[in-house]
Design a protein around this nucleic acid. Structure first.
Lengths: 226, 226
DNA sequence: TGGCATTAACCTTAATTAACATTGTTTCAA
DNA sequence: TTGAAACAATGTTAATTAAGGTTAATGCCA
């Protein structure tokens, strides 16, 4: 599910926008105080940020810079009453990816959010029906099979799920918690140890191709290099 | 080089915009007649399209649809005097990726073009396949490896993060607090001592090349000289 | 009863914390 | 104005803790 971090200090407007976004199926975390944004950003791990510019304590530009320090790619949309070109430029210079002028319509906001998600997530729309080539192997998620030359290894359900996640995000890091949530539904201690076991198995399956590697990022997650 | 297909029927405005874009290093193909656009699109193979909406014979929305038929991913920016929300929506619904209101400044247009290119080409910039040469060493951030001659040292996640920051800003100072924020997420006391430990390690790794040095700027940060 | 999932036990390594050493900076009296 | 305390920031090394790896044993269910 798409998670939106929405920073807005006007409670009335904020409530309406939040509910409106939620009714479209987004998960929204609203923050009113600029000083709390970074803490929420880390905890919530949003897929996209919508920032009002005029805030008490910290303005939206500064927030964008802080976010960019931590995450150079998460999309950022500015929301503001300012209309001068120089403000728009400032928004982009500070790492923003879109700039919507107030008053805006919800439709426009939603359409711009979806557009930006389309642009950034384009890579992840990998094919489903065919196999995914991983080095000298070919992985068929829907068939639960991993092929190499003439050898076919049947994979279990959990193995397939885990490998699908790694393959979708290959050459970029995957959060450990995200894997646990998607494969086991939660990230309790025992499931966590479980993931270790499956990672070991997958490493074993890919042992014959040394160009492939599942790298551990301790305290973070994994990276499937190919 | 980035190729822009620019569709505009006002010759005077068109000339200015075209030259302005070219002076920024873009290759521009300008088309005034909507009926010629598709032919030019196929021949020129642009990386991005900038479309005026109000055109004789065919409007920009229709053009966008035609382009999407042939190419579902090429970024499209609309340029128009219309300001109604419904026009903006129409733009996105027809496959557009940004919508700039006339009158616009060249700066804004350029910054929006660059932004959209960043978003779509992110994968290419993020996963820099090559290594960074640091003296007699070569650093491969995506592989978590530091090479020197035949020796390969595997780096941990934190080591890689820290070295990436230093390497990106080599021969210029990096703020201590900025490093802490990016590697550890905050700049508390304990993390601060942590950074010292990792700096020591990196110094150790680079000991064999005396032309490289991590200089401490007390009270400020570090400077990676090479 | 065989295959998968889970739990457990023990091992390895990275990350953190601690303790103590060193260096740079400031301050204030002589 | 100088130079020795006093202090603060950072360096170094070692100890500790926590995360993850591996392998084996157990549980579970068709």
């Amino acid at each position: 599910m798409t998670k939106i971090l929405y920073v807005e200090d006007e409670p009335f407007l904020g409530k309406i926008v939040k509910e409106s976004l939620e009714s479209r199926g987004f998960e929204v975390c609203m923050v009113a105080d600029g000083r709390e944004v970074m803490a929420q950003f880390r905890a919530f791990e949003p897929t996209i940020c919508v920032l009002d510019i005029m805030l008490p304590h910290r303005d939206g530009y500064t927030l964008a810079q802080d976010i960019r320090q931590v995450n150079p790619t998460v999309p950022i949309i500015f929301l503001t009453a300012k209309t001068q070109t120089e403000d728009v430029l400032k928004g982009f210079q500070n790492g923003g990816n879109d700039y919507i002028r107030k008053p805006f319509s919800m439709e426009e906001l939603i359409v711009r959010i979806q557009n930006i998600l389309n642009l950034t997530l384009q890579k992840k729309t990998t094919s489903t029906r065919e196999g995914v080539v991983l080095g000298t192997y070919t992985f068929f998620p829907h068939k639960y099979e991993l092929h190499r030359a003439e050898a076919i290894r049947k994979l279990s359900h959990r193995e397939t799920e885990l490998l699908s996640i790694l393959a979708e995000n290959r050459n970029s890091t995957v959060n450990r918690r995200d894997i646990l949530k998607r494969v086991w539904g939660d990230d309790s201690f025992f499931n966590s140890r479980n993931l270790d076991v499956y990672i070991t198995r997958l490493r074993d399956y890919f042992r014959e191709d040394t160009t492939l590697e599942i790298v551990t990022l301790k305290g973070v997650g994994y990276l499937f290099k190919s």
